[in-house]
Computed example of a mutant assay.
Amino acid sequence: MNTFGTIFRLTSFGESHGAAVGGVIDGCPPGLELDMDFIQSELDRRRPGQSRITTPRKEADKVEFLSGVFENKTTGAPIGFIVRNENQQSSDYDNIKEAFRPSHADFTYQQKYGIRDYRGGGRSSARETIARVVAGAVAKLYLRRLNIDITAYTSQVGDIALENDYRIYDLSRTEDNFVRCPDPDIAEQMIKLIQEVRYQGDTIGGTITCVVKGTPAGLGEPVFGKLHAMLGSAMLSINAVKGFEYGSGFSVVARGSEVNDSFYNDNGRVNTRTNNSGGIQAGISNGQDIYFRVAFKPVSTILREQQTVDMHGNDTIIKARGRHDPCVLPRAVPIVEAMAAITLLDAYLLSKATALF
């Protein structure tokens, strides 16, 4: 299952220490002008080595489009692209090639396939998300036509967290700091915590919040194609994601009188006084802001000794080497946005296809 989407589809390929990673975007409508600088800027937000709180691996991550584009516009044909790997250090993984790293993909991949690429995790590496960011950037360009805007930000690192209500923050400040948090004071605390954890040879998890503005009412299906289920599937497919909640989420366990979003006539437009539903009701968008939160676990590769077993069933001790993120959140922000964009464009195109019948 290397393909995501129904009409707007992404198939990704490649491994962390292979020649390249890339993808094929199918179902993109023709005539969309591609802003190559914007697409590259989205990749730059995801690339390694961009700050002192990310992995020092140096990759330019320059995208090369191979097909489906003519005179800078999409043709409707499959859009093929690659990003070449340039800075692998495969020898960093020699000491763990027969050992299963705790909470990593090593054991499950070995059980499923009987073979695994131990160098950087192979296919399970987060470098696979490069393809998602490229496809997400293309989707964002189309969503701009529909006045749909997607912004994600780091809302929690460890026990340092923002308030849940995104409306109290200036989300335009998200890119002002390394951790991509719209509150500069909280951002400094988060950065300090990540640096402390990194110095200790450890890692830390947290939460990313995503806000989608401008979504029209009517996207999503009432039974198996619920919009929030589509978004949940997209987010839970991202490396290291352990949880997804939208709207009021788990805090919705209250009285109906406290969480129901009452309607009112807003100058001829149906509006809601609150948005506990997170912009989605009965699986279909209602025109309000869509907002959700995504929980990321700490990076499994830590620079400490850990107990494990090897491929032969022997108890052993491993200590990882190499260049790793102490916290995935800063680089995961554009990935969350990308998967949201792919999902929403797919839902939009599905709604247009449904309208034909």
Results as ranks from 00 to 15, higher is better:
Y109Q: 08
V333D: 01
R293F: 08
I168R: 13
R331H: 11
V252S: 15
C210R: 06
D94F: 04
N164Q: 13
K62V: 07
P102H: 08
V157C: 11
R173K: 14
L231Q: 06
F178T: 05
G31F: 12
G278E: 04
C28L: 13
A338I: 00
L193Q: 01
E337G: 07
L171G: 01
T11A: 14
N260M: 07
A105S: 15
D325V: 00
I150H: 03
V259E: 03
K319T: 02
H324T: 11
G158M: 14
S90T: 13
G122Y: 07
A152W: 07
A229V: 00
L143H: 10
S90Q: 11
S124F: 06
E33V: 08
G80D: 07
L349Q: 14
Q288V: 03
I290R: 00
L227R: 06
D176H: 09
L227K: 04
G214A: 08
N177L: 05
A105D: 09
G256K: 12
E245I: 11
N286A: 03
G268C: 06
D176E: 14
T3H: 01
V179H: 04
E258P: 07
L329D: 01
V212N: 08
S237A: 13
G120D: 02
S103M: 11
C327K: 03
S351K: 14
V138L: 11
S16Y: 08
G18T: 04
L43A: 14
Q156E: 11
V63M: 04
L34C: 14
F296N: 01
R293G: 01
D94K: 15
G218R: 02
V69C: 06
S103L: 09
C327N: 06
A217R: 10
V336W: 02
C210H: 00
T354H: 14
A126V: 10
S91Y: 14
S51C: 07
H324L: 04
P184Q: 14
N275P: 06
F4Y: 13
E98D: 13
K352N: 12
Y348E: 00
S233H: 09
F13N: 06
A137L: 08
